[in-house]
Design a protein around this nucleic acid. Structure first.
Length: 417
RNA sequence: GUGAGUGUAGCUCAGCCGGUUAGAGCAUCUGACUGUGGCUCAGAGGGUCGGGGGUUCGAGUCCCCUCACUCACCCCA
């Protein structure tokens, strides 16, 4: 085979598209109820947009971006996630001047140059939402409730909602140093990965699954105890609002975000029914990002759902698309011309109609009609042309109805069923 | 970037210790008292055995290299 998709990229074929439509349609319905409006953003951005927001030392920026030079010598990058592009657009178009909260959603592909594995691709699709301009935790609880409703409406069950607070620019550095001083004294007891994490991302050590690391980190200072007054209050308020809305959730202080821009609220939804890539959606608050992009200080919160992560969980329960309303089986050249014309006429009237294009036997035409799940079949031969009468056969009930060989009458006959 | 596994028909796979024209099921197409589908039966098309090199009288099978895919680690939706 000469050409194939690039590593980690995939074609989405008609056979699987109904699952995608199902998810997108359900999500759109819920977004509407919560007042979120669609925004469509470019896939390509100036590289700085991502470096500045996601963080220079994050894994995404350090080794996962599709970055290249355009013909003008500018460094551009295929977006590895949606929020940075969104905030750029939010500031560029002064959307903060609309009444708060401003609420947006988007759907589309993201790109990360990673080694592909189960449920992880280099081009992957996300459905994301962003709520801007409100720092009250009602908006946090509301967006998590909305996420829960979307996932439920799509048909997902057995999900685990985890929430935490990762602090803000004031208290996070304090916690980081407190944690490092605790871990530093016993670093030799941790695995190689954790020793490397000590400098790169010490919080990640709290999430390591190696048994000796779990043992060695016992007694480490709890994150939530090191939040500043404002962040602690915010987190407690979030929990009480989640309880008010009856959104099921568990507090996981060791949730780690790979993006630098998050502040306070962070959350993640995972499924036990996936492989090691168990996160199906994740998000959090980003209260200083708009500011950093040159806009007025504006709080924001958002999430993204990973399409490829939820599709395997529901694909068996989503029905497949049906076949044509009508299939013509013409016998002979004159009948084929007539069928061809009627096909066109009935299509313009709103029916899905197919006809046969070659002169094969009736048996094989019927086989084809059956194979493509046609609802009805009409055989046209010399008799039918001469008498201007045909018989419409319903392929599921085998019931036969006679009719004139004329578009209007056929249309009525099929629509009535 | 690291580690392991797998590459034979469109799909799922069989192919013994190396041995003659490489098989099956499903799918596709055709046919079964020449105008009626699903079931059944018969037949046909479809393969440079991922690619290259080596060993051998002989390689789908053994060895080396390479490419691709898969899973896992890292990290993440």
């Amino acid at each position: 085979m000469k050409y194939k998709t690039l590593k980690g990229l995939q074609d989405i074929l008609p056979a699987e598209i109904s699952v995608w439509h199902h998810i997108e349609n359900r999500a759109r319905g819920i977004f509407r109820n919560y007042g979120y409006q669609e925004i469509r953003l470019p896939i390509l951005e100036s590289t700085d947009v991502f470096i500045r927001s996601i963080g220079e030392t994050s894994d995404i920026v350090e080794k996962e971006m599709y970055t290249f030079q355009d013909k003008g010598g500018r460094s551009v990058t295929l977006r590895p996630e949606g929020t940075a592009s969104f905030v750029r657009a939010y500031v560029e178009h002064h959307l903060y001047n609309e009444p708060a909260p401003q609420k947006f959603y988007y759907m589309g592909p993201m790109f990360r140059y990673e080694r592909p594995q189960a449920f992880r691709y280099r081009q992957f699709y996300q459905i994301g939402a962003e709520a801007m301009g409100i720092d009250d935790t009602k908006i946090d609880a509301e967006i998590i409730a909305m996420l829960s409703n979307i996932l439920g409406s799509i048909g997902l069950t057995g999900l685990n909602f985890e929430v935490t607070s990762i602090g803000c620019k004031k208290c996070r550095p304090d916690y980081r140093t407190a944690l490092k001083s605790f871990l530093g004294s016993r670093l030799d007891k941790f695995c190689g990965d954790c020793q490397r994490r000590y400098d790169a991302n010490p919080l990640r050590i709290l999430d390591c699954k190696v048994p000796s690391c779990i043992e060695s980190r016992k007694g480490s200072p709890p994150v939530l105890d090191h939040l500043c007054g404002e962040c602690r209050e915010h987190f407690e308020s979030l929990i009480s609002h989640l309880e008010l809305l009856e959104v099921p959730h568990t507090v996981n202080p060791n949730l780690v975000r790979g993006l630098d821009y998050y502040t306070k609220t962070a959350f993640e939804v995972s499924s036990k029914n996936l492989g090691s890539q168990s996160a199906v959606a994740a998000g959090g608050r980003y209260d200083s990002m708009v500011d950093e992009f040159g806009g007025p200080p504006t709080p924001g919160i958002g999430f993204a759902i990973g399409m490829e992560r939820i599709i395997p969980l529901i694909k068996d329960s989503v029905g497949v698309t049906a076949g044509p309303d009508l299939f013509f089986c013409p016998l002979g050249a004159a009948a084929a011309e007539k069928a061809f014309l009627l096909t066109e006429q009935l299509r313009t009237e709103g029916l899905w109609v197919e006809t046969n294009y070659d002169g094969t036997s009736l048996r094989s035409q019927m086989r084809k009609a059956n194979r493509i799940s046609a609802g009805n079949v009409i055989v046209i031969g010399d008799e039918e042309l001469k008498n201007n009468k045909i018989i419409l056969k319903n392929m599921t009930t085998r019931e036969e109805t006679s009719s004139a060989l004329e578009a209007k009458e056929l249309l009525n006959l099929i629509i009535r069923k």
